[in-house]
Design a binder for these strands. Sequence first.
DNA 1: CGGTGTCTTGAATACCATCAAGTCTTGTGG
DNA 2: CCACAAGACTTGATGGTATTCAAGACACCG
Lengths: 251, 251
Amino acid sequence: MNVQTRSTAQRASYHTDPNNQLLSAMCEVYDLRLSQVAHADAALDARNALQRASARRIIFREHDLHDDVPVICDGWAASVVMLSDGRRQILSFLLPGDMVSTVLLFDPRPNCVIEAITDVKYRMFKRADLKEAMLKHADVFEQISKAWIEEKHRADQLIVDLGRRTADERIARLILNLSERLAERGVTTKKEPMEMEFPLRQHHIADATGLTPVHVSKVLSEFRRNGLVKISDRSLAILDPTGFRRVAHMR
Amino acid sequence: MNVQTRSTAQRASYHTDPNNQLLSAMCEVYDLRLSQVAHADAALDARNALQRASARRIIFREHDLHDDVPVICDGWAASVVMLSDGRRQILSFLLPGDMVSTVLLFDPRPNCVIEAITDVKYRMFKRADLKEAMLKHADVFEQISKAWIEEKHRADQLIVDLGRRTADERIARLILNLSERLAERGVTTKKEPMEMEFPLRQHHIADATGLTPVHVSKVLSEFRRNGLVKISDRSLAILDPTGFRRVAHMR
DNA sequence: CGGTGTCTTGAATACCATCAAGTCTTGTGG
DNA sequence: CCACAAGACTTGATGGTATTCAAGACACCG
């Protein structure tokens, strides 16, 4: 059974996403720039070579200054705020194709750490290049605006979840949001049972929902007992989407 | 005593803020545009006339489409998300000089309601004008980027507060944040005792911190008993800034 | 093979919500 | 101007949700 599970779970990668217009617009800009240059490939590699970080490593430290904006190409990462007493809060999960934050286009000093959840591949784009491209190419401007809207919308939703929703709702909504984002990227299906690659540990869910790992465990067990989800072997299936959406108060 | 309190509490208005570069950059753009036009004043009035809303009125409804971006000129407002079962979450308080949201520059469909807390004066700026100005005038672009950074930073902070902080911390931090924002605008002093106009009802604090009004009342009473703050007559004084910052975990 | 990380489960506890009653203020229409 | 209603705040009693503490099972890795 697990074998089947593994084989149907697709590997997340921005390459599989035909709709990732932001990244393709950005790459196009690089191509435009580089078409005027000899040895374009070499120049591209030098400027935004593919980088790698293994699971649980920090890609991007807080309060460092950066001239680059990372874009996740493969794997999952998270933006995390850490408090001095050890409390942690995940601001967002970064999936393949996501720019770490549109704020980094304007502010070299991030206010959070970027942590790899799985092994991650990412590219660095020069902030200066992107700002220039944004002003010169309408489609880049458009795509960055879109990313901006999306980013703020997700932050606002999280505020509501953390401020006004119960543990059950928060966890169910997190899972549904992730599944929708993956579906948009074409790395998972919308067919039932909705099944997806799910590399999050329970402590990631806890840090994203403002709960403790212990309580996350209890809620997930409850979901399983009620036949809502099945979690095994780093993959997750939503067995009863209707019931699950009802728990999440999402129609 | 209250009389003195009233007299020292200054009235919030963007006119008192010499540092509001966003609004002045925007107005400058209008002046630039209008300098090419006869009857400039009339045109300015027509395009972004000062509007008014009295306390507890809704300025901006969710899911309406808008061609305009409101900027608060006088008074306090809030962006509020309302859930179907009556739960409410305030995403941010809007003070004089604040653009409602930079997202509205790109997305005509807001995901929250704007509610006046006090009587409010505001101006509507045409989205199309602002986008155009953003591309043509570097300083407008700069100021809008700054507003975006600030807006996202505050949203991220709120996520951490709601996810990982206790009621005491949340409330203390809210008050300190507001006091700092007012101080930046020059509508309050940084001298001790830090005193400011404070038109929020306890239910506003509750909706902003994800708590119940009852609990807010209890925490504020505790603060008062410990000599941290004094609240009377729609004004608030931080009597012991050091102790208060300690409660808020802010140095 | 011990060490570390992950998950589960139960018991005790803390924090905040809910319920309820009462005071005081504010606003409004007769 | 008064009467009454509605809103704002306080306080105490009670309850529920999530945390903390603790112990154990299991998998993975050097």
